[in-house]
Design a binder for these strands. Structure first.
Lengths: 158, 158
DNA sequence: ATGTTTCCTAGCAGAGTAGTAGGAAATAAC
DNA sequence: GTTATTTCCTACTACTCTGCTAGGAAACAT
């Protein structure tokens, strides 16, 4: 018990999204070096290299080596969702006891737990699949998302 | 990479909720033994004992020792949310890189990430705070939650 | 007293997290 | 073709978290 949490965005995922946002921001000034991103977003350089590599393997970014090389987004920033990034570097968005909800089976009074986890997942997807890198980079989050942040209670802790 | 996921309901949390549901189901037949719950829900007995203890410390259940002892809910099943249970055994629902969203600060094109995480958290809370043990135990999930499970896409993997 | 059941402490094997280190391979500029 | 640059790859480390198990002490009912 302590500061561990259940919906946890890992350092990897957070860094990956921020790096992707940085790429979205400098979309037409040639490839961006890992080092540049690392400095701009205060991310450990070598750690970031590995993350960018995962994103390349996942088809999210393309890379070029050598002097004046670097990374750029493989698709338009409007066409890459936050969920795409997180899934690429960290795997599935939602799991229960290590497996994805559809593989679960409950009995007795717990039977309705499965639909609950499904609803939870659908809800998370709605947000993370529905927001693109461009939305965040240009500070133009969808109104449904902005609406959720209106309630001051959303900003307080528990 | 692999089967790790970002919104992960741990075994602890899953077991805790199921145990609480079992208690909600036998609310007026006297205290329920850990062993009984363990068998009914196929949860490792000694592991469950620890979880029930955490729930007692968290004020969710009361206990009685000795022959004919066991556990019962401390409040009405309508008055305990799924979020209450998860938070009691696992800590805060949502965190980014180990800290809760309000403590974060982003710069440059990542500035709108904070409102995004806040919206995500609000959305998760909406579900988990809004569903009580009684809702699940009686298979009477709120209609907003049921609506989310209507779309067949909610049941498919990615 | 006796049996039952919770409560407490300790430990443990495996996996995941957040990095670091060092160098090989590709590319561009000269 | 050499050199500087930058990605790419492998391996390693230290720490924490997860999902348990073991053994017994304390409380309670009969």
């Amino acid at each position: 018990m302590g500061d561990n949490a259940r919906m946890r965005i890992s350092a990897r995922a957070d860094y990956a999204v921020r790096a992707a946002l940085q790429l979205a921001a400098c979309t037409d000034s040639g490839p961006v070096k890992a080092e540049t991103i690392a400095v701009a977003q205060e991310i450990p350089h070598k750690f970031l290299e590995g993350i960018l590599n995962d994103m390349r393997r996942g088809g999210l970014v393309t890379s070029q080596r050598g002097g004046n090389g670097g990374y750029r987004l493989a698709r338009a920033a409007t066409d890459i969702s936050i969920a795409d990034v997180i899934r690429t570097v960290d795997g599935p968005l939602v799991s229960v006891r290590g497996v994805r909800p559809p593989e679960l089976s409950y009995s007795g009074p717990a039977e309705s737990l499965l639909p609950l986890w499904i609803a939870l997942r659908a809800n998370v997807r709605q947000i993370l699949d529905g927001v693109s890198l461009a939305d965040v980079a240009t500070a133009g989050l969808p109104t449904e998302v902005m609406d959720l942040t209106e309630d001051p209670a959303a900003w307080t802790n528990p």
